[in-house]
């Protein structure tokens, strides 16, 4: 085989690799990104039903109810404007899950307006709040300090 033919084959292999990779990424991305929504967006009807998304907010005081016979738990999450969404889950709630504290649930919003969660995450440290939750639950944005956000 001549050197030129060989180079051509290597170039072709490279092109195939690039096309394959982009195809793969494109395919893998479909439906595997979980967007974070607020209760406000749910009430405003901006949230797609029937696909996996996440909802963040504070767990409303006194809203956690458990079934007497099954694992099922239901609770209400709030955002800073006091919009409410009910969440139902059949999974164990995390250790740090508490009424009045923040949580993020991953699951599906059904047409009945209830969010069915496959997973509930609580903040994972006594004094640490997930970065992405700050905008949702903080009453007012803290003033920008020293020009650094």
């Amino acid at each position: 085989m001549k050197a030129r033919q060989k180079r051509l084959i290597f170039v072709l292999l490279g092109v195939v690799a690039v096309i394959g990779a982009s195809f793969l990424i494109n395919k893998a991305m479909q439906g595997n990104f979980y967007k974070l929504y607020t209760p406000q967006e749910v009430l405003a009807g901006e949230v797609p039903t029937g696909q996996t998304i996440r909802i963040g907010g504070l767990v409303k005081e006194g809203s956690l109810k458990r079934s007497d016979t099954e694992l099922e738990a239901r609770f209400v999450v709030l955002d800073k404007h006091k919009n409410e969404v009910t969440i139902v889950t059949n999974k164990i709630l995390p250790d740090l899950f508490k009424e009045g504290k923040s949580q993020i649930a991953r699951g599906i919003l059904k047409a009945d307006g209830i969010f069915y969660a496959e997973e509930v995450l609580a903040k994972h440290d006594a004094n640490y709040m997930p970065e992405e939750m700050k905008d949702i639950v903080t009453e007012q944005h803290t003033p920008v300090k020293d020009g650094v956000k």
């Binding site: 793969l24 990424i25 893998a28 991305m29 595997n32 990104f33 967007k35 974070l36 996440r54």
Partner: peptide
């Protein structure tokens, strides 16, 4: 890409997303 994607999307101001394990499994 899957690891940085949420940061990129957030930086562009198009919302907060997380990339699920299926993305990485599919790849």
């Amino acid at each position: 890409l899957g690891t940085l994607y949420p940061l990129i999307i957030d930086a562009l101001g198009s919302g907060k997303i997380s990339v699920g394990p299926p993305y990485f499994n599919n790849i």
